[in-house]
């Protein structure tokens, strides 16, 4: 059997099971979420998440589920290919496995970065529906359970012996909320990705400063330092990305 036959066979099999071409998951028509587009989206999501102090919205278009599915299928494929020990296919196998590992790293690092943020400010992200929207389904379950355990532990170890009116973990007495959140004013490095509103595709950022506010046109590909709260809107619209 020639290598091209094997690969053709694999391609055919691969296509057969491609859930993105079918309607299994209800995601778009084929081609709309190509592997390359997903890789770019996943990479951007990862870099953004790693750059921001705040938890960013969970991708609503099923990006993570899709990527996980892709990896699962590719691993099945590798398992099938390991069967025949043709040295030629062996090298293709190494390439495929290397790529799978790269995708796995991206997803794992992305999810771990999110868990770290949820762990740090669990109550904050559970405090309002708008913030809870940012969590994925499993993340909501994780955060709720995490908080339950923590609260139970606090109650049994010390909170229980406090007067009842001091037992809350979310007091806002004195105008200061007990629930801490991430620093929204922290400095970030962002890159302009282009926008349709500005001239020549530049994004207009309004930055607030100590001595004055300023507006600056960020060209495509230009990297600037700004406060997160000043550029958050642009990042969420996809006009800028963190670097």
């Amino acid at each position: 059997m020639d290598i091209s036959d094997i690969l053709q066979d694999l391609n055919a099999r691969h296509l057969d099971r491609d859930p993105f071409a079918g309607n299994e998951d209800g995601y778009g028509e084929d081609g709309q979420h190509s592997g390359q587009a997903d890789l770019q989206a996943l990479t951007r999501a990862w870099v953004n998440e790693r750059g921001a102090a705040e938890l960013l919205p969970w991708p609503k278009d099923g990006l993570i589920e899709r990527a996980t599915n892709r990896i699962k299928q590719q691993i099945e494929l590798v398992e099938q290919m390991t069967g025949d020990m043709d040295p030629k296919t062996n090298f293709s196998l190494i390439i495929i496995q290397t790529e799978v590992e790269r995708w796995k790293f991206l997803i794992r690092s992305y999810l771990r970065a999110r868990i770290a943020k949820i762990d740090k400010h669990t109550l904050h992200y559970l405090s309002t529906p708008a913030l809870m929207e940012r969590l994925g389904e499993t993340e909501v379950a994780y955060a709720t359970r995490h908080q339950q355990l923590l609260h139970g532990h606090y109650l049994s170890s010390f909170l229980g012996s406090f007067p009842v009116n001091l037992q809350n973990l979310n007091d806002t007495a004195g105008g200061i909320s007990m629930i801490g959140g991430p620093d929204e004013e922290g400095g970030v490095f962002v890159r302009g990705l282009g926008s349709r509103d500005g001239g020549e595709g530049s994004v207009v950022v309004r930055g607030r400063g100590r001595d004055g506010d300023g507006e600056i046109d960020v060209q495509r590909g230009e990297v600037v330092v700004a406060r997160w709260s000043d550029v958050r809107e642009h990042v969420e619209k996809g006009e800028m990305e963190l670097v």
Partner: peptide, 29 residues
């Protein structure tokens, strides 16, 4: 960065951002 606002680092490289990040963000904050 002193006055605050947005400052441009047009043309900067990825490794340079990675190296300078903690210092620059620290100064800014």
């Amino acid at each position: 960065l002193e006055g605050g606002g947005v400052s441009s680092l047009r043309g900067v490289g990825a490794m340079e951002v990675s190296e300078g990040r903690s210092f620059i963000v620290g100064v800014m904050d």
